[in-house]
Design a protein around this nucleic acid. Structure first.
Length: 566
RNA sequence: UGGGCCGUCGCCAAGCGGUAAGGCACCGGAUUUUGAUUCCGGCAUUCCUAGGUUCAAAUCCUAGCGGCCCAGCCA
């Protein structure tokens, strides 16, 4: 089996790291980190970052990657997300070893360093309200104005900051700000906020703090404290890099290292949304069923849909790492799953849209057991037993009274092979006398054709089937893209992304006949239902004897393309 | 019209002065008891545009054009 993870991978970030190593920077260490905020579940865009950070670290003997929760805003964070994020990272196949951290671990140190900044005259307490601060900040084209607090003495700032911490001020009345420049063309440098007063219970530190540090202040210092060498993040933080560097430069004497921030472009996938805000809206607005709805691009959703960690890792390798904006087609992701499951998924048969056929030349109680391979090219997957009876179900689409050109399935008076069994011939059509709808087919079986080509005729078509007398009933869930447009997040014409929801993204088929062996399907297994696609038991609803299958992805269907053209 | 970043095939993406890798998609054709898989073949005289430098430019220079991000006490 191929090991795509192992294949040599290059991108501009790996090139920089290799160069740094060649120049013996950081004493030959490579330390990265994946820093999620526990305010939502992970999605495939995070997978890109996880694969990058953990992947880079694993390329070097001395490499390591930290999992650090960026928990500086307790208002939005929940402990449940911490668990789900850990699970997702592990499920994807990565291991942070002993290196699990929380930004909140550093709150005391962060506070002390803030006092250092104040003493160095590099930070001050600002008493502007949020509205005033916005007003003072200026705009993209106009410079900002200095806050009155900017001219306070060091000692006053220190006293005030200590009072902030001691809880002597109401929420939002004061902030600690970096003293940089209110006229910087980079708005992030216009004296950014370092601390704010928030009387909120923190999931890690409880009620110990009533002031919380901001991301910009916390992230660079956390990186430095952990000895991160390369701090990889997405493009929207590019404008924050001068601030990242500024803070670390001011604290040069206090901090041993100065990590390098490098930005790459975030992943956009067509026909879905990736922003936390929109995903949250979909979940809380009940447009989907929870964070792990199989239609969502969340890790949990993909897992429930039947995606394998391997296929997601491979996808992340194929899309690469650049700074260019990108909108990757869903077809690439789907292909990665097919590629994995084609080799590894045992085959089975199920009928989604059943049409009864009666094999007239077989006795009523006929029952033949047929032992078949679970995978024609992979013997290791073993065998199973199929039961052939006089009455069977085939797919309604596999029979046509007036077949289009090129149709090679069952037609009146025509022959077709039943997968793993005999060639049959359609002798007649039974209709509902009132509606004229086809109710069943009368067929005959050529008993000489098991594992053998019929005499003197060529039978091209092969169709799948399930015994009408001996089968298991399953619920089948078919999924389509969640949105009707490639970029639902783009709403320049007005409206919201919800306007583009595809009302037919979920189709539930109840009580469909599937072969008996599927009654024992285990959670986490993947099957190829022949000619239909790859299916996986639903994590929540599938039970032994009453399985529920999610279609992970369909098989490629070149006949459907031909049909479309006709 | 402030600052930062980006622009190579329908979608990703190599390339880093020597004459356009690869994957996906698409289009043929072969094999096939899955119209799947596999296998063969095709698919950018051209790199956002226009000038310039050079024997030689996607790669260097200049000027345009187009797109993305930033005005949270979010991350």
């Amino acid at each position: 089996m191929s090991a795509p993870d192992e294949k040599k991978q290059t991108d501009f970030i790996r090139t920089i790291i290799a160069q740094d190593l060649a120049r013996n920077l950081n004493d030959g260490r490579v330390v990265t980190r994946f820093p999620p905020e526990p305010n939502g579940t992970l999605h495939i865009g995070h997978a890109k970052s996880i694969c990058l950070n953990f992947g880079v670290a694993s390329q070097y003997p001395s490499g390591r990657c930290h999992l650090r929760f960026d928990d500086t805003n307790p208002e939005k964070e929940e402990i449940a997300y911490i668990q789900s994020i850990k699970e997702d990272v592990r499920w994807l196949g990565f291991d942070w070893g002993d290196h699990l951290y929380f930004a909140s671990d550093y709150f005391q140190r962060l506070y002390e360093l803030a006092e250092v900044l104040i003493k160095k005259g590099k930070a001050y307490v600002c008493s502007l309200s949020a509205d005033e601060m916005r007003d003072y900040r200026g705009t993209l084209t106009e410079p900002g104005r200095q806050s009155p607090g900017r001219s306070r003495e060091v000692s006053e700032n220190l006293t005030l900051f200590q009072a902030m911490r001691a809880g002597q001020f109401a929420d939002g009345t004061h902030t600690l700000r970096a003293k940089i420049s209110m006229v910087s063309p980079n708005i992030n440098m216009r004296d950014p906020t370092l601390y704010r007063i928030r009387r909120v219970h923190h999931h890690q530190t409880g009620d110990q703090w009533c002031i919380y540090p901001t991301y910009d202040y916390t992230h660079c210092i956390s990186d430095a404290l952990e000895g991160i060498t390369h701090s990889l993040c997405t493009l929207e933080f590019e404008d924050h890099r001068p601030l990242y560097d500024w803070i670390l430069d001011q604290l040069q004497e206090e901090l041993a290292c100065h990590p390098q921030q490098i930005e790459f472009s975030r992943l956009e996938l067509e026909f879905t949304v990736m922003s936390k805000r929109m995903l949250t809206t979909l979940v809380t607005g009940n447009h989907v069923c929870g964070w792990d709805d199989p239609r969502l691009p969340t890790i949990a959703g993909l897992r429930r849909r039947g995606y394998s960690p391997q296929s997601i890792r491979n996808f992340c390798r194929l899309i690469g790492i650049t700074k260019a904006p990108n909108h990757v087609e869903m077809a690439l992701l789907e292909n990665c799953l097919r590629e994995d499951l084609e080799v590894n998924a045992p085959r089975a048969m199920a009928v989604l849209n059943p049409l009864r056929i009666i094999l007239d030349n077989l006795p009523e109680d006929y029952l033949e057991e047929i032992v078949v391979a679970n995978h024609s090219q992979n013997e290791a997957l073993g065998t199973r037993t199929l039961v052939l009876t006089r009455e069977l179900f085939i797919e309604r689409e596999d029979f046509e009274e007036t077949p289009p050109k090129g149709f090679k399935r069952l037609i009146p008076d025509g022959e077709v092979r039943l997968r793993h069994a005999y060639v049959i011939r359609c002798q007649g059509v039974l209709r509902n006398p009132k509606t004229q709808a086809i109710e069943s087919l009368r067929c005959t079986v050529d008993t000489e054709t098991m594992n053998k080509a019929p005499e003197g005729r060529k039978v091209k078509g092969v169709i799948h089937w399930v015994s009408a007398q001996r089968h298991c009933k399953a619920e089948i869930r078919l999924y389509d893209r969640l949105f009707n447009v490639p970029q639902p997040a783009d709403n320049k014409a007005g409206g919201t992304f919800l306007d583009h929801l595809n009302p037919e993204s979920l189709q539930i088929l109840e009580d469909r006949p599937v072969e008996e062996s599927l009654a024992a399907a285990q959670l986490g297994q993947h099957f190829q239902f022949e000619r239909l696609g790859y299916f996986s038991p639903d994590i929540h609803d599938s039970t032994p004897g009453k399985p529920v299958f999610n279609r992970s992805v369909s098989l490629r269907d070149s006949w459907a393309k031909v049909e479309k053209k006709i």
